[in-house]
Amino acid sequence: MTNANLPRRSWVQRWHVKGIGWTALMVLLLIGSSKMTDVNVGMFFSNLDQFADLIVRMSNPAWDYLSVIIQPLIETIQMAILGTTIGTVFAIPFALLAAGNLVHNKFLRGFDRLVLDLVRTLPDLLLAAIFVAIFGIGSTAGVITLAIFSFGMISKLFYEVIETIDMGPLEAMESVGASKITIIWYAVLPQIMNQFVSYFLYTLEINVRASTVLGYLGAGGIGVYLQRSLNEFNYGATAVIILATIVVVLIIDGISNHLRRVLL
């Protein structure tokens, strides 16, 4: 079954040298890094019984605690919505300035991206700790943390979407004699609106989850109660909080998945 017309493959191609080589290198790097960082996989398995013990203690949810956490759960969702919205509003101009197909000035774009990179580098837990110190314990610190976190994330997602749009309509609007802002409004926004909404909802989901953790640092919401119940070894309450959070996250996931499907 040899075809005389085909060129011969080199031995590198025939023995898949590149594929095998890269795989071997990755495996070596993985083993090396676990050695150097002293990660002990054995410990994970030997301590599994403690994990099981915790599960057993939590297997008896204190359902009457539910009435206590409804209010903070709502607060968590409100924090997430507020934070995401504020972050998005600020992210839009920064995303437009960071898009290579809209802004040809390299320095302006580079500076803008530098700012965005810096914002994204700050971990949300660090932000929460800082803002709790500034604004005191409460949801204000949480909202600001989420706003900055959403800003960093959304601006990057947005400008990457902007860079994939069809430039044809922009050229047409330019030839019509439209100003820059009009071009963006008429030719850019309609092309990206659905993806914008989709990413907004995605960030909202992440923020609902994140805000439970932020509460741990005193940034308001359900996390405060999670921390309290754990400190008091009140595992029944912990179980209720976790279950309720899962339900909320599932509902928000469902709504945003549905909206994304309808929109795209």
Partner: peptide, 29 residues
């Protein structure tokens, strides 16, 4: 540019917008 109309191989309409909005967009200048 307003005095010079331009037509393209790929039409370059705004796909997600209505025909009316596309036509009116020729008037923005």
């Amino acid at each position: 540019r307003r005095r010079i109309g331009m037509i393209f191989q790929n039409f370059n309409l705004i796909n997600r917008s209505s025909v009316e909005k596309n036509v009116l967009s020729g008037r923005v200048s």
